[in-house]
Amino acid sequence: MNRAQREEYLREYSTLKNQGKPFFPYAVAKDSAMACVVMAVIILMTIILGAELLPKADPTTTTYVPRPEWYFYFLFELLRVIKPPELVALATIGIPTICLILLFLLPFYDRNPERRPERRPVATLAGIFTIVAIGYLTYLGATGGSPNELEIEAPPPIQAAGGEMLASYEAGRIMVAQSGCLACHKIGENGNDGPGPDLTEVGQRLPSQAIARTLQNPTAPMPPYDELATKNPEQFNNLVTFLSQLRE
């Protein structure tokens, strides 16, 4: 906006303001009505949804669901949409940071003096696109596969071996299911494709030592399992056994 446009705006605005009504009681009444609605919604949600408390946090046992609060789903889903590991930093930090900078600087690069939404189609469409994108990512996050369900048959050689091997494999499967690995990984038909790599055939790609090393010292954002390895090596070994048997 150049100077003339700014002055024109201020003149027009002061007229509109003079033709308006006083803040008290007109705006105050509307705001108070809205405050009552907000209060009612919060209380209703509380009564209907309650406040659950899961079992206590335990860094060694692993019945956890690494799900953020719903309003972070869209950030979390970005990680799934952008797959290649070299681009993880872009998805986690890069895109949100760029969007935030764009948001901060909005008044400085949108210098169009027009204010009616239908007469600034670029801004309006960009706004609608942003809302749809955030809504879609949130929806994806909300409907993602359950992180605690893992139905998978033991491969024939393990079934044939039976005994201790089969027991260890099954224990490992339950560990994986309980640990919420599937919130970020896919195993066969189970779990979510990303942000972590597909584990369906990880046993083919990596030897068991490499799997154990990765579990203890993973790439972010995966949480490390080193505490489990030192405090409960048997469970940790089951985990490794199960994973190293995953192949096509």
Partner: peptide, 16 residues
């Protein structure tokens, strides 16, 4: 459990 592990993942994301 949810609070702890979701925050571990969140902080890890930050670390990238």
């Amino acid at each position: 459990q949810k609070a702890y592990w979701a925050t571990v993942v969140g902080v890890n994301i930050n670390g990238t």
